[in-house]
């Protein structure tokens, strides 16, 4: 279909790797600039024991020069080794391995539900009168302004404690996933619906819409055959950002719902300055971002033929 596709993909892959390498580098040097890691491992009280500092530094490889540590870090990350937790002194991969799935599950289901809610809102209100549009836009602004963690508390209070429809704690299969998903999905739906409707209104002013209507296209036909595709373009651009934000938001929502997941581990690690764990989560999130971005980049020219030739320049 388009000749430059392989080259385009290769370039995207390279940029992705570059961003990841940057993410690793930034976190590594930020951690080493923030102070002596041995203090973080030992805590203030144990630091005075003679010989202990040196032993711990040697154990974690912190006694070597910084460039060596950096190269070692790159090499071990390349093999999927994220180092060892200071606090639990076990490999970070094992610590996170069991926790990453519930978080991803929550983030993905929230992404799907959010997109679905936004699409429904857009389709229902598209082309309606001023009052309907103003009403929905007020609703959207509200949805965006509500922090997911508080929405979670509201939902808990209403559906778990008062109506007792859903369990208040833990992850009991699907029923335990409903409220946390909604808490994340509703603000997201607000953002997506705003972006899509803004684009939709912009596109509806374009002459080609008038052309289509002059051919006898109905309101729904116009939306499905023409304008909705345009509205999906900015939403596609945002998808990587959306996933990242959802992973971030999931940490808070998990705390509110006492769900297992990255949230509990991460907050614990932050409080104990367990930097290998925190860096690992941050780098994983960057990986998700890079992958999602690459997917969006591949999706973009499928929706918009004009972009298939951009690499010509």
């Amino acid at each position: 279909m388009y000749a430059s596709l392989p080259r385009f993909l290769l370039r995207r892959l390279l940029t992705g790797i570059l961003v990841l390498w940057g993410a690793v580098t930034v976190t590594f040097f930020a951690v080493s600039a923030a102070g002596d890691q041995v203090d973080a491992i030992l805590g203030p009280q144990a630091a005075n024991l003679p010989g202990l500092r040196e032993r711990v530094a040697a154990e974690y490889g912190l006694d070597r020069p910084l460039p060596v540590q950096y190269l070692d870090r790159l090499a071990s990350l390349a093999t999927g080794d994220f180092g060892r937790s200071y606090q639990r002194s076990q490999p970070v991969t094992r610590l996170l391995g069991s926790q990453i799935l519930p978080t991803l599950q929550l983030a993905l289901s929230a992404a799907l539900v959010g997109l679905l809610l936004a699409l429904i809102a857009t389709v229902i209100t598209a082309g309606r009168g001023r009052i309907v549009r103003t009403g929905t836009s007020v609703f959207e602004v509200l949805a965006v302004a509500v922090p997911p963690f508080w929405l979670g508390i509201l939902l808990l209070s209403l559906f778990s404690f008062n109506l007792r429809w859903f369990p208040a704690f833990g992850s009991h299969g699907i029923s335990g996933l409903v409220l946390p998903t909604l808490a994340l999905a509703i603000p997201l739906a607000g953002v997506l619906a705003q972006v899509m409707r803004q684009e939709l209104e912009l596109v509806e002013g374009r002459p080609f819409v008038l052309s289509a209507r002059a051919r006898g296209q109905s309101r729904l036909g116009l939306l499905l055959r023409h304008t909705l595709r345009h509205a999906l373009l900015p939403a596609t651009t945002m998808s990587a950002w959306v996933l990242g934000t959802l992973v971030g938001g999931a940490v808070l929502v998990e705390k509110v719902f006492s769900r297992p997941g990255l949230g509990t581990v991460l907050v614990n690690a932050v409080q104990h300055r367990d930097t290998p764990v925190v860096s690992a989560v941050v780098i994983l999130a960057a990986l998700i971002f890079v992958v999602a971005n690459a997917l969006a980049d591949m999706l973009y020219p499928v929706i918009d033929a004009r972009l298939r030739e951009t690499s010509r320049a």
């Binding site: 923030a34 971030g248 932050v270 300055r273 960057a286």
Partner: peptide, 17 residues
Amino acid sequence: VWMAFPEVLLALLVIAL
């Protein structure tokens, strides 16, 4: 690179440091 990190997680990293 910076924008590849979700804001909340990046803030958590800074707090850890």
